[in-house]
């Protein structure tokens, strides 16, 4: 497991991955020397990764759901009781954002009330703006992309479009490149930060703690919060 450090309080967070091209993102996050489920995904793959925050350690228990359409009806099994969700779309495929929106709506309606949802546009490496402009300057990580100047811009979904949707729905929003590693860690760090502490008491518990989380969540889940410092800290990878 991760290089566990100081005796910071540690808690585990269940995270469910939904949408297209999600697996590569989580593999990037988990990959290095952390355990990875090599088996082909049946239903969902289970992975874990630790994320060190200044004040605590978050252990992500990640359910990476199978990509095939028909497995969607199994999804409720996995997002049940999840405290966080990563809804990924492929920013070169317009349909994938539509699907992502459905997942968001599904989660908001069916998952536990306080769930922290991050909307992530993946495959930033296929656009020609990786080096020039980081749309997420506010996260202070514009230099992360080792830009290769691809000639064609395969981007089909503009940052503004997805971002405004995310703001409307109160989602965390990132554009990433799993291939290059752009913004990947930031996504998870931001999620870790957004999880209300009330829902972190020891092992995940249903009921009271989550109900409390719900109210607190409103203020926490927004992009412009003072999270820059925390995101610099980064995960333990």
């Amino acid at each position: 497991m991760a290089d566990s450090t100081a005796p910071k309080p540690s808690s585990s967070v269940k995270l469910v991955l939904l949408g297209e091209a999600a697996s590569s993102l989580v593999l990037r996050f988990v990959n290095n020397d952390f355990q990875e489920n090599k088996e082909p995904t049946i239903g969902a793959a289970f992975l874990t990764q630790k994320c060190n925050l200044p004040t605590r350690t978050i252990k992500f228990e990640i359910w990476d759901t199978a990509g095939q359409e028909r497995f969607a009806s199994l999804a409720p099994m996995y997002y049940r009781n999840a405290q966080s969700a990563l809804v990924v779309y492929d920013l070169t495929k317009p349909t994938s954002l539509i699907k992502a929106k459905h997942w968001v709506a599904e989660l908001q309606r069916q998952a536990s009330p306080g769930i922290v949802i991050a909307l992530v546009g993946n495959k930033l490496d296929l656009t020609n703006e990786t080096s020039s402009s980081n749309p997420l300057g506010e996260d202070g990580d514009g230099e992360a992309a080792e830009g290769e100047d691809a000639d064609g811009d395969a981007r089909k979904i503009s940052t503004a479009e997805a971002k405004s949707y995310a703001e409307e729905e109160g989602l965390l929003f990132f554009e990433t490149s799993a291939k290059l590693g752009t913004n990947v860690t930031e996504v998870f760090t931001a999620i870790a930060n957004a999880i209300p502490e009330t829902s972190l008491k020891g092992a995940r518990g249903p009921g009271a703690s989550q109900a409390a989380a719900r109210t607190e969540d409103q203020s926490r889940v927004n992009l412009t919060g003072p999270r820059d410092a925390a995101s610099k800290e980064g995960c333990a990878c």
Binding site: I42, F46, M77, N81, G205, P206
Partner: peptide, 16 residues
């Protein structure tokens, strides 16, 4: 009690 859903474990057993 520990909020573990059995089927996330057993589903692959049956499916494959």
């Amino acid at each position: 009690k520990s909020d573990v859903q059995l089927s996330v474990v057993s589903l692959p057993w049956f499916l494959s």
